[in-house]
Computed example of a mutant assay.
Amino acid sequence: MRLTLLATCLLLAGFAHAQDAATRLADDAVIVDTHIDAPTELLDHWADLGGEVKGREFDYVKARRGGLDVAFMSIYTSPEQDAAGTAWQTANAMIDAVEALAQRHPGKFALLTSPRDVDRLRQGGRVLLPLGMENGAPLGDDLANVQFFFDRGVRYITLAHSAPNRIADSSYSPAKTWNGLSPFGRQVVAEMNRVGIMVDVSHLGDASALEAIRISKVPVIASHSAFRHFTPGFERNISDAIAKAVAASGGVVQVPFGTMFISPESAADGQAYYAARQAFDRRNAELLAQGQPVLDQAAFQRDWAPKHPPRGSTLAQVLDEIDYGVKLIGIDHVGIGSDFDGVGGELAEGLKTVADYPQLVAGLQQRGYREADIRKLLGGNLLRTWRAIEAGAQPAR
């Protein structure tokens, strides 16, 4: 009995020591998360993220607890907003919300527009807020908007989201409009290269992603893409061939924590949902064209949800994604893009908020990663890629 008690005490002491070591490394390393959907949450239901906010996955208190330094704020617009012509307005309102947050709490947050400023601006415990535009819809059909949004602070653009747009095809849509980039999309990529905005191939159909990588003159990123190896047939996740192309460009694949991306069962549910929803929307379009009453969207959701309850995922599955990526494309080309506040709370156990990065660090340590390599995964790789993209930019004409 005494030996059992002693062994238990030693085990707990060892666990506490490991957690302390992970927390120290998380605090000291530069953690860069390339995808946090706090701006969408701010517009849907405002809260002051300078304090701790119940129910939010990102706020200042949680960020400091987790050691987060650089939090890319996702400026997300939907295909519906694109179709309605409101994407430009929504994007600017979101950017205003992030600017207001930094201005209201200058000792806690700072806007970040260049990797050169990370060390200076994070002094004093600030959390830095660069902007990533999820969906190129706000560009409309005006190439000048690339420069406009660069001037507003946007430093990556996910070319498309859950439907084809003027630029590229979406991975979620089985029907491809462009089978690559559109003519305008090729101009957009060139202009992004010129001004210094990272080209993001997450969410893209395979042909669109490959063409964007091929024609970009600087590295490209996948801001939040798990590996398709674990979810066969789920085009939303990055294929081995595309991941290798991203790495060959000098870029980085950022692994998300969302259950739908890392759980094969949840990914299958997601594919089924998008197929059913697209069929539903097509039927409504037919009914509308015939002058008949359309089907009820709320009823569709009510019918779908109980038949497809949320599934779980684990920290181990996130670590498996990282392990696979490192073996496939090398330690210099993998990072993290959580999708916090963007997946309805359906996240891996142990990685529920930005306070939980030390859990990820502890998991990496337990799997034998060296400290220098953990620092690369947490943010060093993304910052190196960003510096290369910035260096490739050209002065304004």
Rank of each mutant, 00 (worst) to 15 (best):
R126G: 08
V127R: 03
V127N: 11
V127M: 07
E134I: 10
E134S: 05
G136P: 00
G136R: 01
A137F: 05
P138E: 14
L139M: 06
D141T: 15
L143N: 01
L143K: 01
N145G: 00
V146M: 01
Q147V: 04
Q147G: 14
F149A: 13
F150R: 11
F150A: 09
D151L: 01
D151R: 14
D151S: 13
R152P: 14
G153F: 10
V154G: 07
T158F: 05
L159D: 01
L159Y: 08
L159E: 08
A160L: 11
A160D: 06
H161N: 11
S162M: 14
S162I: 10
A163C: 12
A163E: 15
P164L: 03
N165D: 01
N165A: 04
N165I: 11
R166V: 09
R166S: 14
I167W: 03
I167M: 02
I167F: 02
D169E: 09
D169L: 09
D169W: 15
S170C: 04
Y172A: 05
S173I: 01
S173C: 04
A175P: 00
K176H: 02
T177C: 06
T177E: 12
W178F: 10
W178Y: 00
G180N: 00
G180Q: 07
G180D: 08
L181M: 10
P183K: 02
R186E: 15
Q187H: 11
Q187C: 00
V188R: 12
V188A: 07
V189M: 05
A190S: 13
E191T: 02
M192H: 10
N193R: 11
G196D: 09
G196L: 06
G196E: 13
I197M: 01
V201S: 13
V201D: 07
V201N: 00
H203S: 01
G205K: 12
G205Y: 14
A207Y: 12
A207R: 15
A207I: 10
A209T: 08
A209C: 01
E211Q: 10
I215D: 10
I215C: 10
I215Y: 08
S216M: 13
K217F: 06
V218A: 15
V218S: 15
P219Y: 07
S223H: 14
H224I: 00
H224D: 07
H224V: 04
S225L: 01
A226T: 02
F227R: 07
H229Y: 06
T231P: 02
G233D: 11
G233F: 06
G233C: 12
F234Q: 03
F234G: 02
R236T: 12
I238T: 14
S239E: 09
A241S: 07
I242P: 03
I242H: 00
I242N: 12
A243W: 03
A243E: 02
A243T: 05
